[in-house]
Design a protein around this nucleic acid. Sequence first.
DNA 1: TGCCCTGCCCTCTTACATCA
DNA 2: TTGATGTAAGAGGGCAGGGC
Length: 211
Amino acid sequence: MTTQMNELHDQMALISQMYPGVYSQIAPQQAGESKPRRRRKKNKGGENSLSGAKKRKLSQEQVNLLELNFGNEHKLESERKDRLASELGLDPRQVAVWFQNRRARWKNKKLEEEYSKMKTAHEGVVLEKCRLESEVLKLKEQLCEATKEIQRLGERVDGVSSNSPSSSVLSMEAMDPPFLGEFGVEGYDQDVFYIGENSYIHGMEWMNLYI
DNA sequence: TGCCCTGCCCTCTTACATCA
DNA sequence: TTGATGTAAGAGGGCAGGGC
């Protein structure tokens, strides 16, 4: 083996330790180049399979007890395995295999649940983002209106101040609360729009769509 | 300390049972 | 009859612990 190949092998080994699932999904091709996986031969009522006995479904009772034990503890110490096997009239190897398969099924289910949760959370976040962006747009519009209003009042005050000495009072009145009410952020509409979850628009770029 | 053996585990795969 | 699905079990490989 060359040094390069050794390095590659070490890297793959490292990856397989860090991401066992991922590695096993991507590795077969590479692994297959040098050492293809052995395929099991068909064994039609073969000599080795459970003493020639045909498969095999475990009885409901056996499954129930196994499930009960799995519910208590997913791992199977050899003592418990032997005890279970004799209780169920099974080979300890069968009990071990059942637990192995059960753990695999449990893991798959867990992954599916995890995915489902994350998807729901993601959809919520996307919705909230749209709501907030919509709110920002609304506030910007209000700010724009207010600026115009201030400008109008300023012009009016300028006109009056040339005739009256009490212009400062007027200008103060002009800045009085009436505006504040307009700027309230509560009670924004619920007509939130929704952008598909994959249609991300960063920053305020999306506003251009509505201008 | 390094090597080998053993047992257990994980993952992928195959074979078979069952059902629509 | 056939395709889809579920599951028991085989196979390959990793890892840890014990003996030498």
